[in-house]
Amino acid sequence: MMVLGILFIMFLSVAAWKSKTLTKSGMIGAMIVGSAIYVGFSWKGILLLGCFFVTSNMWGKIKSKQKYSLHDMVKKHNERDIIQVFANGGVPAFIAMISIFDPSNFIIYTVLFSISLAAANSDTWASEIGTLSKGQPRMLLTCRKVERGTSGAVSLLGTCAALVGSCLIGVIAVLLFDLSIKNLLIICLFGFLGNIIDTILGQTVQVKYICRVCHKVTEKKIHCQQLGRKTSTFSFLDNDAVNVLSIVFSTCLSLLIL
């Protein structure tokens, strides 16, 4: 049964690569993450991971032409590489592996696993749906209006999407693992908190550059064939590192309640 499950995960990963959802390295990363989650949480864990993966890519493809202008601002695009796969799925995979060695606390690990996926889903929904907002978003800490797609910016549409994305993972986790209503609330709350933490880190410590030619703020170090100028001396993390930290922080903070 174990071999069959891993073969199925490999098949899905190859299919995602063929459909240009993942790069070749992303396909390998998905095999590793998926296999680890299957070993820890069996088919139920894969179904919850699949919910994140499918819905995230679905929103990514909706009105993709409208989002095309944002490609000039972000470092990476729709095809996820191995770094992006690990940034979103590495923490859930780690929790899945740890749960094997401590079966007496399986419920706690299940909730932590669900929170880590809820945080990833919340952030992805906020990013993909929030960019469709008609109005300009505002920086969370300063309320200054900025261009859509700017890291650290929020909109009403994106914030609502983040909450729904977290709650979706929470509800499915409760149905799959027969968790309590209290655990549902914890998953929804801390999953959404992961998006808030991501936004704060995105505004404060995520590296952004000002193009010396067109003066656009972008995640790309090279823009208009020129080396950009950092917007802040204290910024040092890229988007993938911010994603990992936001998931880690929100998941660890939940231990205060669990």
Rank of each mutant, 00 (worst) to 15 (best):
F53Q: 07
K76S: 13
A118Q: 09
V111I: 14
N78L: 13
P103N: 14
L117W: 01
A120H: 02
L49R: 09
F113N: 07
Y109C: 02
I82C: 06
D102G: 00
S69D: 07
A93T: 11
K67W: 08
I115Q: 07
M58F: 15
I95L: 15
N88L: 00
I46Y: 02
F52H: 07
V54T: 12
L117H: 00
K75I: 06
S116P: 01
K67L: 05
I83V: 15
S56K: 01
A120I: 04
K76D: 13
I98L: 15
L48V: 10
I95Q: 01
I83Y: 14
F94M: 14
L117M: 06
N105G: 06
D72T: 14
D81S: 10
I115E: 11
K44H: 05
M58V: 15
I83S: 08
L70G: 07
M97Y: 03
M58E: 02
A96K: 05
G89H: 03
G60V: 00
H77P: 00
D72P: 12
A118I: 09
S116W: 03
S114I: 05
T110R: 11
S116M: 07
F106A: 14
V111R: 09
F113R: 03
A119L: 01
M73S: 14
L49H: 00
L70K: 02
I46M: 02
M58Q: 01
E79P: 05
A87F: 03
A119Y: 06
I108T: 04
Q66I: 00
I82N: 13
K44Y: 10
D81E: 08
F106C: 11
L112N: 02
L49Y: 15
G89M: 08
K44G: 14
S69W: 00
T55F: 13
R80S: 04
G50L: 10
G90F: 04
D72S: 14
L49Q: 03
L49K: 09
S69V: 14
N88P: 04
F94G: 03
S56G: 15
N57H: 13
F52K: 03
L47P: 08
S99L: 13
Q66Y: 12
I115S: 00
I115K: 06
N88K: 10
V54D: 00
W59P: 09
S56Y: 08
L48P: 11
L49F: 15
I83L: 14
S56V: 04
N57T: 07
S99E: 13
K76V: 11
I82T: 06
I108V: 12
A120F: 13
I98P: 04
S69A: 10
F53I: 11
P92Q: 08
F52T: 04
I100N: 12
F101T: 11
K75C: 05
D102Q: 06
V91S: 03
I98F: 01
L49D: 02
K67V: 11
L48S: 06
